[in-house]
Design a protein around this nucleic acid. Structure first.
Length: 307
DNA sequence: TTGCAGGGGTCAA
DNA sequence: TTGACCCCTGCA
């Protein structure tokens, strides 16, 4: 029985889970492992379990990717949270075909990460997560965020397993630096604390970011300690605020140098090229390129690649 | 077993 | 522009 139709999707409620039909352009592996999020954990059966706001759900695709099965979820949650979170209102086929027409490199990158969707994550959580990401690797970032949530978040259950919400602003702002260091964030702990306090004290209002242009939003974010150009661009992109940014980390730099410039290029040069070349879609292009480069180790060891 | 190099953005000098 | 920051992993 059809439970409800919502914006082109058929949503069936089946006990404690829902099945969403008419899904396109969504592969959980591509989406959760393309470096944009740190709280989705792959299970032995290939599904993913993650915490978003105060919900914990299990996700998998079925029926050749045409169905999305969300465990521990109601149809109401789908409408109120998951539709938006998974950016299901956006036509990724159109974006992919437009980017693929740009050149052969983009075409390959888009084919490789065809199921990437840019998640619309909580701004506060993305801000802290990407401060932690600075000079850090993905498994470590995930570990730090997990400890931070276990220590300062609220417990929620799925089956007999405990999960924890991401800690609130006030909770972190009220901590002292020595206590915060249990999360093993190292030198980033002082940035987390100071950033939390700046928001709590009203020094910077995060909601302003939704109302200003990309350049201004970037400058506001860079007022937080631990936020530079790359982290600011990640925050804007992964919270779904701006899509014309091009976060340039070492992987993106490598792939751009190897595939587009055929020489070393400065961050500034790469940014300027990408924002012009990809127009308002630089953020999507970056995500396909990053995933393609990292999974294929492009530029990491030129000798191994036979170059 | 130990120790050292490598990875990786931001900040301050 | 360069070194320090911090912690984990991989390898000798």
């Amino acid at each position: 029985m059809i439970c409800l139709e919502y914006k082109g999707y058929e949503v069936y409620e089946d006990g404690n889970r829902i099945i969403v039909r008419n899904i396109k352009d969504f592969n959980p592996v591509h989406t959760f492992e393309c470096g944009q999020c740190f709280r989705w954990v792959r299970e032995a059966d290939g599904s993913y379990t993650g915490v978003v706001r105060d919900k914990v759900v299990n996700i998998r695709c079925a029926n050749g990717g045409k169905e999305l099965v969300i465990g521990n979820c109601s149809a109401e949650d789908f409408v109120n949270l998951w539709y938006h979170y998974f950016d299901l209102g956006r036509d990724y086929s159109r974006i992919k075909s437009m980017l693929s027409r740009k050149d052969g490199i983009m075409k390959k990158a888009v084919e490789f990460g065809e199921g990437i969707r840019l998640l619309r994550q909580d701004l506060w959580e993305v801000l802290i997560s990407f401060i932690i990401s600075a000079n850090n690797r993905i498994p470590m970032i995930m570990k730090v965020i997990a400890i931070l949530s276990e220590t300062y978040g609220n417990k929620i259950m799925l089956g007999d397993k405990c999960y924890y919400t991401f800690p609130g602003i006030d909770r972190l702002a009220g901590e002292n630096i020595d206590a915060l260091k249990v999360c093993r964030g190292g030198f980033r702990c002082k940035y987390i604390l100071e950033t939390s306090r700046m928001i709590k004290d009203g020094e910077i209002d995060l909601n302003v970011l939704y109302k200003v242009g990309t350049g201004e939003a970037r400058e506001i974010l860079k007022k937080f300690p631990g936020v530079g150009s790359k982290v600011a661009d990640c925050i804007l992109l992964y919270s779904g605020i701006k899509y014309d940014v091009f976060p340039t980390d070492v992987w993106v730099k490598r792939v751009m140098e190897e595939l587009y410039f055929q020489r070393t290029a400065s961050f500034k040069e790469i940014q300027e090229f990408a924002t012009t070349y990809f127009n308002g879609y630089a953020g999507f292009a970056q995500q396909y390129l990053f995933y393609y480069a990292r999974e294929n180790k492009i530029g990491k060891d030129r000798n191994e690649q036979g170059r």
